[in-house]
């Protein structure tokens, strides 16, 4: 099983990297991009034969306690068999 974890800055937090990328896209004449937010992506490959509920709980714990700083970031994840 794999867990795809996405960590992004909270919407209330300014993202200067995203803003810079948006500015660059505009300068390069790409159309229609209203906003860019940059984040991090983690792919966790889990040991086989683990119960899905336990995996969920552990992935959430890892994301909450290690992969994000709750002051500025939030996470989303999906599991894949």
């Amino acid at each position: 099983m794999k867990a795809h974890v996405y960590v992004t800055l909270k919407t209330t937090v300014l993202d200067p990297q995203g803003k810079t990328i948006q500015g660059a896209l505009k300068k390069m004449n790409y159309k229609g991009v209203e906003d860019v937010r940059q984040g991090k992506y983690f792919l966790l490959t889990l040991e086989p034969n683990l119960e899905k509920d336990k995996v969920k709980a552990e992935v959430e714990r890892i994301a909450r306690e290690v992969l994000t700083n709750p002051v500025i970031e939030e996470f989303a994840y999906k599991l894949e068999d």
Binding site: V13, L14, P16, Q17, T20, N69, V71, I72
Partner: peptide, 17 residues
Amino acid sequence: LCEAGLLPGALMRNAGL
């Protein structure tokens, strides 16, 4: 100290990158 929760808030990348 901020990460450890001993001080409030967090330090992010400089605004000018």
